[in-house]
Design a binder for these strands. Structure first.
Lengths: 342, 342
DNA sequence: GCATAAATTGACAGCGTTGTCATTTATAAG
DNA sequence: CTTATAAATGACAACGCTGTCAATTTATGC
């Protein structure tokens, strides 16, 4: 029935024999336990390498009552973002013999916290990675803390003293991209933000305003519009902007989809991009580079962030001391056709 | 160190005791083994339900020398497609106590087959799901078959007698969407296909041609253009089409990105959509519904296909007899603004 | 150099499940 | 009703690893 080849598996016992130590010492050496003499550790690692030893994860799970599984919980339709996080998690997990799993939930469901806890206990999940908007769900965070579940957050908007998280300075990036537009010679720049409840959008707006002020340019209610992060709202905003601020030569939208909506409306309006209207977005979504014209945008290092967050989580799980609870990442500004020189 | 709550775990032994049978009989009942009397099976399942029993996957893995892991190998930048497959896999995996894992590879790397085999044996993966283009890599398929690894393919273009796979009839869907355009009154319809090497695009083209012929319309070299599946190529194609076939009132592109490129070029050209030019795409990519105007397209049931493929794979793994090696799915035609009534 | 503390090591018992194989029970055949 | 055969059942040993705790070795202090 089973087609499995019956090649005998290399076990810790084999390694121990080869290295001339006991099973347990070999186990310790392989797990970076500090209580092993250096020479024995080396002998064990050498033997492991020689035999190309791979620990049996199931056995380890069973014996240690841990799953060696880290799950990313998300409630986000942006598959692009989610898959970048997964890639970063995998990098870190592979390195430490963990499994990376991604689980989608619906945080508007009434029982979602209960279900999350149920999942974590049922599968004995070792730790969680949470991304927006879940990482800002205070009820969820409270429940997880109460049960002592290890969590690391990616880009939370609000945090408390005892949270571990990674983040990017969105204000800084928004400042830089606005500065880029200003350096190109634009003076009348409109900003297309999001709803006030969307904290990240607010930070991007702050960066925009700060840059405009620093260069003595106008950033008032007239130049700041509100969208809802859809292409459609970008489209509508363009029409609105042209009505109230017809002298505008550049538009910076708080995400790529709105920026694309703006571009489409502008094209529809007979404007040349970037010659008559320059457009910048935010997020570096997959389409931003494929769009026509390709979109200048801000690229947060999501994969690196997830990798770091996962490494941090693994350290927490293994009980290692962690010096910094948070870590800041810097986004890259990606210059493309939509803001080419005039 | 560990924060795990020390609530005693429910094991098969507990279930067996409650049901008044032996450990092994309980195990058999829980695993749908045929060699259990109906009344005992019921007693066991009842006990399992009462205690909310969840099998310990690690123990099962260790004892059965199987990983209960199914991996989707892919080499595809389309995160949308990949994450739909993952969702479908998870549905099926959850139901049967398996883990779903996704792994990206680069099939242009020289050693990628070797690495794939290495991964499968190292992690003792029970079965693989392969999607395009990997599922059409004959060298890989040969290697996997040689090692007796269970595989189910999603939308392969070429298959042999002993392949298990799921697929959609692309020709039929292309026919239907063309028919939809014709029914709207369009007569001069252009098709934007892909390179000849792209088999799926060819099938879509066949469907287009068949529909046009059936309704006595012209489908010649003049109306059929070639793109490379990027927005940019859709843009270029529009310009080309308008030059050689200025009377065209509808364009059917073989994927959504090209369709979006077409729309953008048309808007840029001052055309109203769908009033002057109707546009249809293919794939129902995430942006197609968010685009402006939203895009009429063909939606293959990727999640359902992955779910079915995974169930099929699990049946293969457990040695169950499988009657049909292949299963056809029907795509849905999604009508949106880009082909609204004139 | 000896007593004591600290670090290192190893024997052994699980972890919760499935595989094996012998035993018991039910069914069919004569 | 007996025997032969098939089906159902259970005892027990794995699976490969880690946790516990006692035994051993090494380092430290006086």
């Amino acid at each position: 029935m089973s087609s499995r080849i019956n090649k005998k598996r290399v076990t810790v016992t084999d390694i121990a024999k080869e290295a001339g130590v006991s099973l347990k010492t070999a186990s310790r050496a392989l797990n970076n336990s500090p209580h092993v003499r250096e020479e024995k550790r080396e002998a064990v690692l050498k033997a492991a390498k020689k035999f190309n030893f791979r620990p049996n994860i199931s056995a380890r799970q069973l014996a240690s009552n841990r799953s060696y599984v880290i799950t990313h919980f998300y409630d986000n339709v942006n598959t692009d973002y989610v898959s970048k996080i997964y890639t970063g998690m995998q990098q870190a997990c592979h390195k430490h013999g963990y499994y990376a799993v991604a689980e989608t939930t619906d945080c508007s469901k009434r029982k979602f916290i209960e279900q999350t806890l149920d999942y974590v206990t049922a599968f004995n999940i070792d730790g969680l990675i949470l991304s927006p908007p879940l990482c800002d769900d205070t009820a969820l965070m409270t429940a997880l803390k109460k049960h002592g579940i290890k969590v690391v957050l990616i880009s939370p908007q609000e945090t408390s003293e005892d949270d571990y998280f990674v983040f990017v300075d969105e204000e800084k990036s928004a400042f830089q991209i606005t500065e880029h537009l200003i350096n190109l010679g634009h003076k009348d720049i409109a900003f297309l933000g999001g709803l006030k409840s969307h904290k990240a959008a607010l930070n991007r707006q702050k960066g925009f305003v700060a840059a405009m002020k620093q260069y003595g340019l106008n950033a008032s209610r007239k130049t700041i519009k509100t969208g809802d992060f859809t292409m459609q709202s970008g489209h509508n905003a363009y029409v609105d902007i042209m009505k109230k601020l017809p002298e505008a030569t550049a538009i910076f939208a708080a995400n790529d989809e709105m920026a694309m909506g703006v571009i489409m409306a502008a094209l529809n309006d007979g404007k040349k991009i970037p010659d008559e209207i320059a457009v910048a977005g935010y997020d570096n979504s997959r389409f931003s580079g494929l769009f026509w014209p390709s979109l200048t945008t801000v690229s947060p290092p999501v994969i690196e962030m997830a990798d770091y967050a996962t490494n941090l989580l693994i350290r927490l799980i293994s009980g290692e001391a962690v010096e910094n609870k948070k870590h800041e990442f810097v986004s890259e500004i990606i210059l493309r056709k939509s803001t080419d020189k005039k």
